[in-house]
């Protein structure tokens, strides 16, 4: 899958809450619970279903955190894959029809 074609959206089945600088995410379907660090939170919050992941990494990660762009892209894809396997994020090669909730 070409990495520049990935779009990500937050699942409608999750509840999320920010506390003390960390994002807590819970899947209402199976009650799995995740705590996201600052970088992961930035990706999660930018997951609007319409912005390509590569653009999110460039503008929300590389511009704001001191990271190597290629490494950031690799880490972001790994993060997205993991969260999608738990039903937290939806991933597609096409923009999603409507904005994420």
């Amino acid at each position: 899958m070409p990495e520049n074609c990935l779009y990500i959206a937050r699942s409608s089945a999750i509840a999320a809450r920010a506390l003390a600088g960390e994002m807590m995410v819970m899947n209402s379907a199976d009650s799995t619970f995740f705590t996201l660090n600052e970088v992961a939170t930035a990706i999660f919050q930018a997951a609007d279903g319409r912005t390509p992941l590569r653009e999110i990494v460039r503008h929300r990660i590389c511009d704001q955190f001191d990271v190597d762009p290629e490494q950031a892209q690799t880490d972001a894809e790994q993060f997205v894959t993991e969260l999608s396997s738990h039903g937290i994020l939806l991933v597609s090669t096409q923009p999603f029809a409507s904005e994420a909730p």
Partner: peptide
């Protein structure tokens, strides 16, 4: 740390409903 406290708390709350609205309230 607060996030750790929330994580431990959520792990021990008795809650069974498969319902996003209620899960949001619980969180």
């Amino acid at each position: 740390p607060p996030a750790d406290a929330v994580r431990r708390l959520m792990r021990n709350i008795l809650f069974f409903a498969e319902d996003r609205g209620l899960v949001e309230k619980l969180l």
